[in-house]
Nucleic acid binder design. Structure first.
Length: 870
RNA sequence: GCCCGGGUGGCGAAAUGGCAGACGCAUCUGACUUAAAAUCAGAUUUCCGCAAGGAAGUGCCGGUUCGAGUCCGGUCCCGGGCACCA
């Protein structure tokens, strides 16, 4: 709490409202302004308290406003943040805006207004909505990824990637969306359509920036063992990285002039079963090795395959297609001639784009071989009886001279080693993970801090600032000329977006920035990073070269890859965050957000974090040690909420009708946080009634404290015991993110409160402290009215007394043959013999024992007595 | 096809291997009220029974156990993810 210098304000605001009934319209804004004036949620970077950093996935401020899914996750983290503060932690609970993105740009294309103004409008609206929910964010740390003070450091991180050779340029087939006029990452294409907008996409060759995430594949995979994440999310990342161990094997071609053909296989042990080879249609050797009499067929097939999108290629899985090339390779183990086919079930992008086909032990090869009547040779036997082909399971080798009888994993090792000894193969690891396509042909994104220069000018720059440049220059060839990528010096950042005439991308695939000649074509000072339009005279002095700026911008993921670090020290102008802040706060102790980011944001952020770790910027190897996904809230009809279905719930409506305390409570009471659950307006009434009941039990009809609540009142014994149970359960449940059962327990307590003839102020206040993280406004109001000093949140979390929880009597359940036959209150410590005697005497139990011999007695003290009879 | 989740009253759900259905919704009955709302008291898994009581019951089949919603094997259905990755 930082109340210094604000004593008078504090006084004014500590007072409760004057309302007589539970008037949330008055209470909620009142306490929100109290918190704001007191800076109640400011986190300090200097503190002797233990730290706790709880992070939400920051929202994209869309024009539609807050969706009900936002407050679900945000309420969960807010409860935890408030609880941890009460437990004496210095809590960092920040929020910001992931504000670059396509919708703002599309809006700009339509209206001609700058995307920044639309974005700012949306932020204002989001902020209003989020503030109305009463979340305990430290607004002094608010960040906006489109703010040059922020993206300066996004660009800085890119420069580090660039310097380490982790960013390069490549002309490659990419997903191009004609409607959006931009390329999309693999991850942004769903079922052949753009993830945003659902427009069709096609393949195009374009010059792109690519980040070498594959260099980190092994660590991204291995370090999943270190994090406390949902198992399903870890599995998804594992599958996405897709590691497989196998071997690269060289097959000599019959036409030895062409050199060997390199294939990748995970099953080198089946080498003797290879009856044909397949090259992807794009494989560079196809042209050279195709026999003249097959050329026409192969050419036709390649053209057909090129016209297909990846989707069609994979979608037409039912029937395989391919053509024979007329060429043959020689099997390195036995010199057998193997025909080479061209087929699009082999993908150029994985392995070497060429395979050895073993139809007996691979389903795809089996299907292909059957269709084209190619031989099938079994080399693995499942052991007993006939092996049904294709057999992809366990077994030992057959028909493999020198290896017969070996279990396949052993044979795999041995054959690989033997091939390696002869120099015709080696063990390798392959990943499905591809390098990350990192550029977009858009306006509304971070500009790349890169200027393209000539070879001679690059050499000049290298002499002046070699340490900023990668070991290998990044280049691309355009109409015979080679262009060199020269980074801006870090001191010249941020590189801001110029204003443009039109937000429409150019039809050639370049972003709207390509039309801004004055920004684009420049005299560039290689040491200072200063720029002057090339239309002006060459400035005096050394270090000026002619350059053209990079016109691509970064994808939306860039800003969200490191925002959790900026919150630690959001105003720092000298670094993305100070080393002290990075050391004190570390990484989030808990990260809550939707499961839809399982392989996108969460993989990219891990990659950047590891690079920053290697640079010595951050002290930990993983950014998010504990992750939790909130479930999706469905519409009332049990369907996914959507505008077209008309089942969308707007948080504003609920705040207006029931108040945010009710909304927050309801969102948490709906079911387990991680579950998918339907919205039910009736349920809101239920939790609202609970809050009204709490109010009524503590405040009388006249608006004064209920006469039954007083300092001198003696609580009924059961109420005291229940209070301590409730303190324990609510605390445990908050720690375990089981908010629904915590609320149930508070409801049970409220019901007891109602029945109690007298309640001590201390008990009432302790209960309000438990309620405060969930429904903070009403808790503050009642706390204040009961004479609590300051904020309810400033009071240390109540402790439960274990002694109060132990009862003197417990209910013992009597079972006969495992069936419940009766029960009885017994003193704690009742022995088995006594319990047995009680059971025999019990009128409900006795008839079931009559005339039957007792075989066994199971006794769980204080719980159960099970009598097993004949 | 493969990999994850999940199937419990009319509904949302709860249950360290130990009384299945806490808590809430909805419904019904009663009290208060001229009346309604609100509030309060009570009932509400199914079947048999006037009742006392009994029997069955956590998708389905089987197993382990004194005892299974919970653990194991199989199976069906629903949701999510991946999908010609050699």
């Amino acid at each position: 709490m930082t109340g210094r210098g604000k004593v008078s304000l504090w006084r004014v605001h500590t007072m409760a409202t004057k309302c007589i009934d539970y008037n949330f319209h008055e209470i909620e804004p009142h306490w929100q302004s109290f918190w704001e004036h007191n800076g109640s949620f400011r986190a300090s970077n200097q503190s002797s308290q233990p730290k706790f950093y709880v992070l939400d996935m920051f929202p994209y401020p869309s024009g539609a406003g807050l969706h009900i899914g936002h407050p679900e996750g945000y309420t969960a983290t807010d409860i935890l943040a408030r609880y941890k503060r009460a437990r004496g932690f210095n809590v960092l609970h920040p929020i910001g805006w992931d504000a670059f993105g396509l919708p703002a740009e599309q809006h700009a294309v339509k209206t001609g207004t700058h995307p920044a103004s639309n974005t700012q409008n949306n932020i204002v609206n989001f902020k209003r909505q989020i503030k109305a929910l009463g979340f305990s964010y430290d607004w002094d740390r608010e960040i906006d990824t489109t703010d040059p003070k922020y993206f300066r450091w996004t660009q800085w991180i890119f420069l580090q990637l660039f310097r380490r050779g982790l960013a390069y340029v490549d002309e490659r087939p990419v997903w191009w969306c004609p409607e959006l006029r931009t390329v999309l990452a693999n991850e942004e294409v769903v079922d052949g359509k753009s993830e945003v907008g659902g427009f069709p996409v096609e393949r195009r060759n374009l010059r792109q920036w690519v980040l070498r995430i594959t260099a980190y594949a092994e660590r991204l995979l291995a370090d999943l063992k270190e994090v406390d994440w949902p198992e399903s999310t870890k599995r998804m990342q594992e599958a996405w990285i897709g590691r497989s161990e196998g071997a690269e094997i060289l097959f000599d071609l019959e036409n030895r002039a062409l050199g060997p053909l390199k294939i990748f296989t995970t099953r080198p042990d089946t080498l003797f079963g290879c009856t044909y080879m397949v090259l992807a249609p794009e494989h560079p050797l196809v042209d050279a090795l195709t026999a003249p009499e097959h050329r026409a067929d192969v050419e036709a097939y390649r053209r057909k395959a090129a016209a297909k999108s990846d989707l069609e290629r994979t979608d037409l899985a039912k029937e395989k297609s391919g053509v024979f090339s007329g060429a043959y390779a020689l099997n390195p183990v036995n010199g057998q001639r193997v025909p080479i086919w061209v087929a699009d079930y082999v993908l150029m992008g994985y392995g070497t784009g060429a395979i050895m086909a073993v139809p007996a032990h691979d389903e795809r090869d089996f299907e292909f071989a059957t269709q084209f009547k190619l031989p099938i040779v079994q080399v693995i036997s499942s052991g007993s009886g006939e092996t049904k082909l294709p057999h992809v399971g366990d077994g030992a080798l057959v028909n493999s001279p020198g290896y017969d009888g070996l279990p396949w994993p052993e044979a795999k090792r041995k054959i690989t080693a033997d091939l390696a000894a002869r120099g015709v193969g080696k063990a390798t690891v392959n990943y499905k993970l591809r390098d990350w396509l990192f550029s977009r042909q858009r306006y509304w994104g971070e500009p790349f801090p890169i200027v393209w220069v000539s070879a001679a000018d690059y050499a000049k720059a290298r002499a002046l600032r070699g340490q900023d440049l990668p070991a290998e220059p990044v280049t691309f060839k355009d109409q015979g000329a080679v262009h060199y990528a020269l980074p801006l010096p870090a001191g010249a950042l941020p590189l801001e977006l110029p204003n443009v005439q039109s937000y429409l991308p150019s039809g050639t695939g370049e972003s709207p920035l390509a039309n801004e000649t004055a920004w684009l074509e420049i005299w560039f000072n290689v040491t200072t990073g200063a720029a002057v339009p090339a239309s002006q005279p060459l400035p005096a002095g050394d270090g000026w070269v002619r350059g053209r700026r990079e016109t691509n911008t970064m994808p939306q993921w860039a800003g969200s890859c490191w925002y959790y670090l900026r919150f630690l020290d959001p105003k720092n102008a000298d670094a993305l965050a100070s080393p002290e802040a990075l050391r004190y706060w570390g990484t989030p102790d808990l990260y809550v957000g939707g499961a839809e980011h399982a392989v996108l944001h969460l993989l990219y952020a891990r990659f950047w974090h590891k690079v920053l770790f290697d640079l010595g910027v951050v002290p930990q190897g993983e950014p998010f040690k504990k992750l939790f996904h909130q479930g999706i809230i469905l519409g009332e009809d049990g369907e996914k909420m959507s505008k077209s279905r008309g089942n969308v719930v707007n948080p504003d409506t609920i705040i207006e009708s029931h108040g945010t305390d009710t909304l927050r409570l309801y969102l948490m009471f709906l079911g387990p946080l991680e579950a998918m659950k339907p919205w039910n307006p009736r349920g809101i009434e239920g939790v609202h009634r609970f809050l009204q009941k709490v109010w009524r039990e503590l405040i009388g009809a006249d608006g004064q404290v209920n006469p039954k609540v007083s300092d001198s009142a003696a609580d009924p014994a059961e109420l005291t015991k229940l209070l301590h149970e409730t303190i324990r359960k609510v605390g445990d449940d908050i720690e375990g993110l089981r908010f629904n059962t915590a609320i149930s327990q508070m409801m049970i307590f409220a019901n007891a409160l109602q029945k109690a003839p007298a309640v001590s102020t201390a008990t009432a206040r302790a209960f309000l402290q438990l309620l405060a993280p969930f429904s903070p406004h009403i808790a503050e109001e009642l706390w204040s009215r009961l004479g609590g000093s300051g904020s309810v949140m400033a009071a240390p979390w109540p402790a439960y007394d274990a002694a109060r929880l132990t009862a003197t009597e417990v209910k013992l359940v009597f079972q006969v043959n495992g069936k419940h036959r009766g029960d009885q209150l017994v003193p704690v410590g009742t022995t088995q013999d006594d319990a047995l005697a009680l059971a025999r005497a019990n009128p409900k139990v006795a008839p079931h024992l009559e005339g039957r011999a007792v075989k066994r007695v199971v006794f769980v003290p204080g719980k159960i007595l099970n009598i097993v009879v004949e």
